[in-house]
Amino acid sequence: MTKEELYKKIENQKKELSAQERNMLYMQGKEVDCLPYSLLSHEALADIWGFTVEELRHSFEAKCALLERKRDLYDEIGISGALGLRGLSEALGSKLIYPKNSEEIVVDPILMNYEKLDSLEEFEVRKNEVLMKKMEEIHRLIDYFPDMPAFGGVAGPMSTAISLRPIELVLRDMKKRPEQLHRLLEFCVSASLKWVKTLNEEFSITSVSIADPATTTDILGYNYYREFSYPYIKKLFDGIMKITNQVPSLHICGHSKKILKDLADIGFNNFSLDNCESLEEIKNLVGNRMLLGGNIDPVDIMRNGTIDDVIEATKQVIYYGSDNPCGYIVMPGCQVPIGTPLENIDALRYAVREYSKGAVKGKRINPFQ
């Protein structure tokens, strides 16, 4: 399909529900116009529309302009109180650089040695200059977009740990300094919960996501995961539940199949999976306990593929995910990278609307018929 053909077809599609209406009705088991979907394309769209990543970090005006455009064109709304994978590390004193159009990079981690952990343990959100600026910005965004919901987000304990201390040292600590690593992970949970608690007190935020790419078994292996990641993910989950009374969502990059039953046992019921896993296998493993999402390749399909590749991949996940008992949200397996063509982002939206009409939670849709 050419770009011109795609946009002609999009023009002829009739939008029936807002994203919020669709999600609510779908989770109630009612028929909706199409499966819920998310484009996961914040920074990719920013780049396409002429904003740099640095502007999104530091310019209130750029954030507002991007949120307005996403709201008007894609019905994707939400004010982010998420710290990202490295935000807490920066707040605690690590030095980061912000390349013009790529993710931030930690160039000088605060915890090259454990002696500094004593001072970090005194951390308080309302005494931290970096986080108070973040709070001020959230206040301004809520004033600017009074009808837009706000949400929170933190990195998982292991991912926070490797943003504070180089990953090679953390991995070595598992064998040589396990007591110190356990102490660090305990601190990571505590610091993240302080942020969640502040968001809840200040903005009544209850929707919280956890991103923990470092917990993939590609990095830890199952035994190290059980010893060093599982106990602290559970503490983070329990703490968020106590603060918000709402189950947080979870995303883990890479392979996660071996640990998903553990995560479901903790209580996670909303999981987005990477493209390296089989959606069919994950559905059969935990689909009766978890709402699933993701699985479209963000690089080979979304960024480097053609319009037809995106449409085909979307049809595949509709086929395998639509009958998940707890529901399925169509989206890429991770954040869509900068450099993704706009037509590929729009092709995902077109394909969901075209090939998952009349979706009902748990009901198989065959888009190939």
Rank of each mutant, 00 (worst) to 15 (best):
L17D: 13
G78E: 03
I77A: 07
G50E: 02
C64P: 01
A62D: 09
E76G: 10
K8H: 13
M27H: 10
E5V: 02
T2Q: 08
D75H: 11
T52Y: 00
A65R: 12
D75S: 07
N12Q: 14
Y7W: 08
I77V: 15
P36F: 02
K9C: 03
Q20V: 13
E43M: 10
Q28G: 06
E4F: 13
W49D: 00
M27E: 10
V53S: 14
K70F: 01
I10D: 02
S59A: 02
G50H: 04
E31Q: 14
E54Y: 14
E31D: 12
F51E: 05
E11W: 07
L67C: 01
E5Q: 10
K70Q: 15
E76T: 12
H42G: 13
W49L: 04
I77S: 09
Y37Q: 01
L73D: 08
K3L: 05
N23E: 14
L40Q: 11
T2A: 08
I77R: 12
R57H: 15
A65G: 10
D75W: 11
S41Y: 02
E4S: 09
F51L: 03
A19R: 12
K15C: 05
K70D: 13
E61C: 03
A44F: 01
I79H: 05
C34F: 04
H58F: 15
S41L: 02
S59N: 06
E16H: 12
E31T: 12
K63G: 00
S38C: 12
L45K: 10
N12I: 08
Y26A: 04
L66C: 13
E43H: 10
I77N: 07
H58V: 14
Y74A: 02
